[in-house]
């Protein structure tokens, strides 16, 4: 259920200039608008990609959210790997 709320919120940021601007300028208002919990709001503000991934945000949505805010994708990969305990020779 919470994953659905997070996915809906982040998907909105992918195509709505207005929502993305609100996230960047007034994230508390955006969180209130989409009914995020306090923790969801703070994790989203902190760009805690690992936590969001573990909560069930779709990887396509999460990765493109990162791209849309010009987030460093190396940091993104590090965060989701640490959050999931992933280890591979491919890293």
């Amino acid at each position: 259920m919470r994953a659905q709320v997070l996915n809906t919120t982040l998907a909105e940021l992918l195509h709505s200039e207005e929502a993305l601007t609100q996230y960047q300028q007034d994230p508390d208002a955006l969180a209130a608008r989409y009914g995020l919990t306090d923790e969801e709001r703070e994790r989203l503000k902190a760009k805690d990609m690992g936590w969001l991934y573990v909560q069930g945000v779709h990887p396509y949505i999460l990765a493109q959210f990162a791209l849309s805010i010009r987030y460093d994708m190396g940091t993104y990969a590090k965060q989701v790997r640490e959050a999931t305990g992933y280890s591979s020779a491919a890293q």
Partner: peptide
């Protein structure tokens, strides 16, 4: 792989 821990593979 897109957005997953194994991205890059």
């Amino acid at each position: 792989a897109v957005g997953t821990p194994d991205m890059g593979r």
